[in-house]
Nucleic acid binder design. Structure first.
Length: 542
RNA sequence: GGCCCGUUCGUCUAUCGGUUAGGACGCCAGGUUUUCAACCUGGAAAGACGAGUUCGAUUCUCGUACGGGCUGCCA
C-alpha cells in the first residue's frame, strides 16, 4: 500500500480513497509488469532503438520471462555518498519511489560507499536528509554497499573457480602506459590482458586483480525501457576488473550482486550508466542470474544546457527547502521534468503515484527551470491544507535557522492562512504577505507604505476609525461601513485602501484589507489604525 | 580517438505517417481590481540541417551538425 503520509495537498479522506483504489490498480499492474526479467536476447535483426514508447512498453508484457517469487516490484536508489543530494539524484530517487510505491512494491535505499576515499558519513547524512525532506521514504534499512564486500568478493571467487574470471598480474603503470600509447596512436584504449588464458601454473607470486572473461564476439543488447534496445558489440567491452589487487570489489561487481541479492526488479538510474549496463550484464550472465528491467533516464542539465554538477549550478536538495519551496511542489516539478502524462502539469502525489510509468519518460535531457518550479510551488501552497502548511512553514523556519512562530502567532497565522496561501509561491513570499500577522505594534512601515500615510491619509483614517468602532465585524459589515464612508467623502475606496494597508500591515503589498481586519479582530485593528493616524510614521529603511 | 545516447516554441512537454503541430511556465497586450499580486481574455513563439522511403513525413531510414555520456584497481 502506498504511503500517504506525504500527501499534504489532498483532503485526507479523499486521498485515502484514491489510494485504496490505487492499491488495486497497483496490484493489477504489478502482476502484469511484475518483474519482467529479460533473458539476454541476441536479436540480430533488432539492433537499433527504433521502438516507440508504446512498443517499448508492450515488449514488457510480451516477452516477460517470469515474475519474481513475490511478483512484487522492487526498485532502489543507490547514491554514492560523495556530496549532497543534487537535483538529478533527487529526481532519480523520486522516479524509483513513484514506480515502486505506485504499484505496491518496495523502494530500497543503498549507499554505494565502496570508494572509501571519497565516501563520507556527512554526505550520507545530507542525502538522507534530502530524501526525508522530499518525503521519499524507503523500505527496510539503509544498506551500505561496503558492508557487503565479503559477499561481493565471494562472487568474484566463484567466477574465478568456474573459469569465468581470471587473475591478471598486469600493474597499473603497465596499463596506464598502454593506454597512453594507444591513445596517441589513435587506437582503441581497451586493455586486453595477456593473462586471460595463462595457465595457473605459470602465475607469478605477485599481486593480481580478478577480471571477468568478457565475451569477445557477438553483441550485448540492453533492452531499456526508456532508451529502447541498445546494442553494443562485445569487442567494445574489456575484461573489467571485479576485485582490486587489495581484494576489495569494484562498484561494477557490487551493484550487480547487491541488486540481485536485494531482489531488485527494475533498475531506474541516470543514463550515464547506460554503457555500464552492458558490462553488468556480463556478470548477470556469468552467474546465471535474471537481468532486471533497465530504465536509463536522461540527465538533468542546468539552465544553460550544460551538465549539472556540483561546480556548475547544482544545489543540494536542502537548498531548495531553504529557498522555501514546499516538498509537494518540488515533487511535482521533478516528476514533470523528463516524464509526462499527457498535458497534466499540476498534480497531487496520489495522481503521480497512479500515473507514473516508465513509458512516460522522455529520452532527451531536460533543463532545470526555476520559474516553473515557482509556479507549481505556488499552486501547491494554494491547495495545501492549512494545518499542514503551517507545519511546513515552521519546518522551513527552522531549516533556515530562524525562530519558529510561537503559539499565539501560529494561531493567528492559521486563521489568516486562507487569505495568504493563494498568493504565495514560496514560504518567504508567504511570510512577506503575512507581515500583518507577524509584526507587533508599533508597526514600522516600509517606504512604500509610509507614502500612504501622509497627513491627508492619516486624516482619512482618523475619521474612519470611529465608524469601525461599532461596525458589525464581518466582511459585509466592514464593506458596508467603508463603502458608506467613501461615498460620504466622495473618494474612491481605492484611495482608502493604501492607507489602510499601511496602517494595518506597514506594507503596501498585503491581502485584502477586509481579510486583515477580520483576522486581526476589532480591538487590534482599531489600535493599529489609531496608532497610524496619530503620528507621522517612522520610516523603515529600504 | 573509439563506442553509446539525444535534438519539437526561450524552457518543460503532447503527437502511435494525414493536426491550422496541442498544453504548461515565462514573455507581451488588454480587462478586472483595493496598490502589488492574484484572476480573466488575447498574442508572439517550435519540428537542427540534408537526403531517402511514402500519395503524404515532426513521426520511419541514412548522413551531417550540435549537445551529452561512457571509455578507471571512481561510483
Amino acid at each position: 500500500m502506498p504511503s500517504l503520509a506525504l500527501n499534504s495537498t489532498c483532503d485526507p479522506g479523499k486521498s485515502a480513497q484514491a489510494l485504496s483504489s490505487l492499491g488495486q490498480i497497483a496490484k493489477t499492474q504489478a502482476t502484469l509488469l511484475s518483474c519482467a526479467a529479460f533473458r539476454i536476447l541476441p536479436p540480430f535483426g533488432i539492433c537499433r532503438n527504433t521502438l516507440d514508447r508504446r512498443q517499448r512498453y508492450s515488449i514488457l508484457g510480451y516477452e516477460k520471462v517470469k515474475p519474481t517469487m513475490s511478483g512484487q516490484v522492487v526498485t532502489r536508489f543507490a547514491p554514492s555518498p560523495t556530496g549532497f543530494l543534487h537535483i538529478g539524484g533527487a529526481r532519480t530517487a523520486l522516479f524509483n519511489w513513484l514506480f515502486a510505491r505506485g504499484r505496491g512494491g518496495k523502494f530500497l535505499l543503498r549507499i554505494e560507499d565502496t570508494d572509501r576515499e571519497r565516501s563520507s558519513p556527512e554526505a550520507t547524512d545530507a542525502i538522507l536528509q534530502g530524501l526525508a525532506w522530499l518525503g521519499l521514504d524507503h523500505d527496510g534499512d539503509v544498506t551500505s554497499q561496503f558492508e557487503g564486500a565479503e559477499r561481493h568478493a565471494q562472487v568474484a571467487k566463484q567466477l574465478l573457480s568456474e573459469g569465468k574470471a581470471y587473475k591478471c598480474f598486469a600493474s597499473q603503470d603497465e596499463i596506464a602506459a598502454f593506454r597512453e600509447q594507444a591513445r596517441s596512436e589513435g587506437k582503441s584504449t581497451l586493455y586486453r590482458s595477456p593473462w586471460r588464458d595463462v595457465a595457473v601454473e605459470s602465475h607469478p607470486d605477485e599481486p593480481y586483480v580478478i577480471r571477468i572473461k568478457a565475451p569477445q564476439d557477438g553483441t550485448t543488447v540492453i533492452r531499456d525501457q526508456v532508451q529502447g534496445d541498445v546494442t553494443i558489440r562485445n569487442d567494445q567491452l574489456d575484461d573489467m576488473i571485479l576485485l582490486r589487487s587489495d581484494g576489495t570489489p569494484v562498484y561494477m561487481l557490487a551493484v550487480v550482486v547487491d541488486d540481485h541479492d536485494m531482489g531488485v526488479t527494475h533498475v531506474i538510474r541516470g543514463d550515464d550508466h547506460l554503457n555500464n549496463a552492458a558490462r553488468q550484464m556480463m556478470i548477470y550472465q556469468a552467474m546465471g542470474w535474471d537481468v532486471p528491467v533497465w530504465a536509463h533516464i536522461p540527465l538533468i542539465h542546468g539552465a544553460d544546457g550544460k551538465k549539472l554538477s556540483k561546480r556548475h549550478g547544482a544545489l543540494g536538495a536542502e537548498e531548495y527547502q531553504k529557498m522555501g519551496y514546499p516538498a509537494a511542489g518540488m515533487r511535482n516539478y521533478l516528476a514533470r521534468l523528463g516524464w509526462s502524462h499527457g498535458d497534466d502539469e499540476f498534480f497531487s502525489d496520489a495522481q503521480a503515484l497512479e500515473w507514473f510509468d516508465l513509458d512516460g519518460i522522455g529520452k532527451s535531457p531536460a533543463r532545470f527551470d526555476t520559474k516553473k518550479l515557482e509556479n507549481l510551488s505556488g499552486q501547491h501552497i494554494a491547495v495545501s491544507d492549512d494545518a499542514a502548511l503551517l507545519q511546513e512553514l515552521q519546518d522551513f523556519l527552522s531549516a533556515t535557522g530562524e525562530d519558529c512562530l510561537g503559539s499565539k502567532k501560529s494561531a493567528l497565522m492559521s486563521t489568516a492562512m486562507y487569505c495568504l496561501k493563494e498568493r504565495a509561491k514560496t514560504f518567504p513570499e508567504l511570510l512577506e504577505k503575512a507581515t500583518f500577522v507577524i509584526a507587533d505594534r508599533p508597526l514600522i512601515p516600509d517606504q512604500k507604505a509610509a507614502k500612504n500615510l501622509d497627513a491627508v491619509s492619516r486624516c482619512i483614517l482618523k475619521e474612519l476609525t470611529p465608524q469601525l468602532q461599532n461596525a458589525s465585524w464581518s466582511r459585509d459589515g466592514l464593506e458596508a461601513v467603508t463603502g458608506t464612508f467613501a461615498e460620504a467623502k466622495e473618494i474612491k475606496f481605492g484611495k482608502m485602501a493604501g492607507p489602510l494597508r499601511a496602517a494595518l500591515a506597514g506594507r503596501a503589498v498585503t491581502p485584502s484589507v477586509f481579510d486583515m481586519m477580520l483576522v486581526l479582530g476589532r480591538e487590534e485593528t482599531l489600535a493599529r489604525l489609531n496608532e497610524a493616524a496619530d503620528k507621522e510614521p517612522e520610516v523603515q529603511d529600504g
